[in-house]
């Protein structure tokens, strides 16, 4: 499966760069994340609860950052497995300065998925993945703002955590949106 997209952050390249290397922020942003910690240089270990349609279960795996070109680009390699199957992906992240306090994050990658996750959940994966990403960006936007104001106010940043029920609601919303989009487009043609 190909994954690609972009998101505009209100922050400098450096701020966005730091944001993505903060395990606390990342754990908060990804729904179902039970654990995320740095276990070696540029190597993170994560445990995440995944829910795709009828397929539910815990994934554990490693995330490795390589090809770092501070603060504009890096490569991310993910290798996880769990009861619902396995997942392996490589992606490139590029941060481009888009003027004052604006950073565009672009990502492209290729993910291989196997096991129950694709056998039964295949039709839903695409939407679920997009939902996770869009929800993560929303939380990251907030986190970035919170960091800034916390820094300005000289206090500890408090991040809103993604809950699994928020996530489920987002997925449901996105699925409906997709269906509406499809019916809409057939009317257009």
């Amino acid at each position: 499966m190909k994954v690609e997209g972009e998101h505009l952050f209100s922050g400098t390249q450096q701020q966005v760069w730091d944001l993505f290397r903060d395990t606390e922020v990342m754990a908060a942003a990804l729904p179902g994340t039970k654990k995320m910690e740095l276990i070696g240089e540029n190597t993170y270990e994560a445990v995440m609860n995944v829910r795709v349609g009828p397929v539910v279960g815990e994934f554990s795996g490693q995330l490795v950052i390589s090809n770092e070109d501070h603060p504009t680009s890096y490569t991310m390699t993910v290798d996880g497995r769990g009861k619902p199957g396995f997942l392996k992906g490589v992606g490139d992240v590029i941060l481009t300065n888009q003027g004052e306090n604006q950073t565009l994050m672009g990502y492209t990658g290729e993910v291989q998925i196997g096991g129950k996750l694709v056998a039964v959940g295949q039709r839903l994966i695409d939407t679920v993945a997009k939902s996770i990403i869009s929800q993560a960006f929303e939380i990251l936007d907030n986190a970035l703002a919170e960091r800034e104001s916390a820094e300005a106010e000289g206090r500890e940043a408090a991040y809103r955590k993604s809950s699994e029920s928020d996530y489920a609601a987002t997925v449901a919303k996105d699925l409906i949106k997709n269906v509406l989009k499809r019916t809409g487009s057939s009317e257009d043609s």
Partner: peptide, 12 residues
């Protein structure tokens, strides 16, 4: 391409 079966249910 990984020889994963993508429609292993009667719903798919």
């Amino acid at each position: 391409e990984n020889a994963q079966l993508l429609n292993a249910s009667l719903a798919d």
